[in-house]
Design a protein around this nucleic acid. Structure first.
Lengths: 254, 254
DNA sequence: AAATAGATTTCGTCC
DNA sequence: GGACGAAGTCTATTT
């Protein structure tokens, strides 16, 4: 039987970068390569037929099938099938991974605490194993978030209404922190809840909670206005706003 | 210069399964291999130094760095760095991917509509490209969900309180669907909101919305009770429940 | 370590 | 296709 492994070695530029790929490796070699993820040196990908079991906040089991497993140096584990954005099973960063070769199989176990959770991936076969040394100095620049919408409102408060004056952001109330807290032209307290996209009933509930909490805090004497600021609202949310005497202003991130 | 590509071919068992891996491929060969994902035949992984730009619900850009890109036959695209559970950029299932080799670079573009979104990944170098034919007949079996908690309550309504009688699940109200709707021993309407874990202020807001909506619907004559059923509650949530005259029952999934 | 709310949330389900 | 709420949500921020 010829050696089916295809391993980067010697003067191979891939190996020089720290990248290494094995095709149809036996469990021992795959386990040795997977160590590079636990060492914190590389992202390891394993492709093969495996079962997956999870126990922790919930419980799950997944019968044998071919999947792509990604192990990152930070402890992240992702099990991806050929469908869907979400991994079918996973473990978040900070988890501790151990990989062991037991006979013809490769067993990967990941544990974490608070909450106690365990993920076990058991490979019947490994079609491919790679260790990828990834260097990535860049950080994502993201625009169009709720924070950007808040900046827009603070820069130009009249977008809410003429005479609106922001007094604080993230102002604490017994019900949580208010996005923007301020006063209208008549000196009435205004609570602003921001949503970057289309707002639904949950956003109205949040705004109502803050308005109720502030009304109690500031005594029943002063009226507290509540304004939902979002790109748009659903019909039901609009109705709930009306029922509660709350207001809506259509406005999106810059 | 020797051919650095390591390609499964001929009687290689990996190739027989439809799996193919290229090391340091030129853009043309990488693009040809990536076609297999757009054909709907394979999960394609690309490893290399790339920039990523996104435009749609928001906007983002990511300077050059080494990353792992996964393209699935269903149109999913994931861009993973060496850190974190979440991809740094992505496109959900249903997106249309095109891969083109332009000079020394490899360009991948993914588009979708409703909402209109575009993701562009531009590779300066490709360290590795794989096409993985994954066969996965299995479905995930998951326990400990909110649905399991609902079953538990319906099987044994006295867990809520002696005399509680469930009348409907997902009962519609103007504020949304109530998890469990029923009556107590005195014939009073009871709204039950279920949470599989620890409940926070949002859960109280949801319950309050449903209680308010039902109180209006059933006229002010009848009192409507609201019960939050969860493994536990946060302090603030407990206070908000008390303020609203709502109740809490500690109960988790079976 | 816990709590709170955002997210390009994604995902299922129902209308 | 939109709306609504769950999720083993994850992630950042603050206490």
């Amino acid at each position: 039987v010829p050696d089916e492994d295809t391993e980067a070695a010697g003067q191979d530029p891939a190996a020089a970068r720290g990248t290494e790929t094995l095709v149809d490796p036996d469990p021992e070699r795959a386990a040795a390569l997977a160590e590079r993820a636990t060492d914190g040196a590389a992202v390891v990908t394993l492709v093969g037929r495996c079962t997956v079991d999870y126990e922790g906040r919930a419980e799950s089991s997944l019968a044998a099938g071919e999947r792509l497993v990604v192990c990152k140096p930070d402890g992240t584990v992702l099990v991806h099938t050929d469908e869907g954005h979400q991994p079918v099973n996973w473990q978040p960063p900070g988890s501790a991974v151990t990989v062991t070769a037991t006979g013809e199989k490769l067993r990967m176990e990941s544990r974490r605490s608070t909450p106690d959770e365990r993920l076990v991936v058991c490979f019947e076969t490994v079609q491919q194993a790679s260790a990828l040394a990834l260097t990535d100095p860049a950080e994502l620049a993201l625009d169009g978030t709720e924070a950007d919408l808040r900046e827009r409102v603070l820069d130009e408060p009249s977008l809410i209404e003429p005479g609106f004056q922001p007094l604080a952001t993230e102002r604490e109330t017994p019900a949580g922190a208010v996005d923007v807290y301020g006063e209208d032209a008549h000196g009435r307290t205004v609570v602003v809840e921001l949503k970057r996209g289309r707002a639904g009933p949950d956003a109205v509930g949040q705004l109502a909670r803050y308005v109720d909490a502030l009304s109690r805090d500031l005594h029943a004497a002063t009226e507290v206005r509540g304004v939902l600021v979002a790109l748009s609202v659903t019909d039901r949310a609009r109705r709930l706003l009306a029922d509660r005497g709350l207001e809506f202003v259509a406005l999106g991130p810059p």
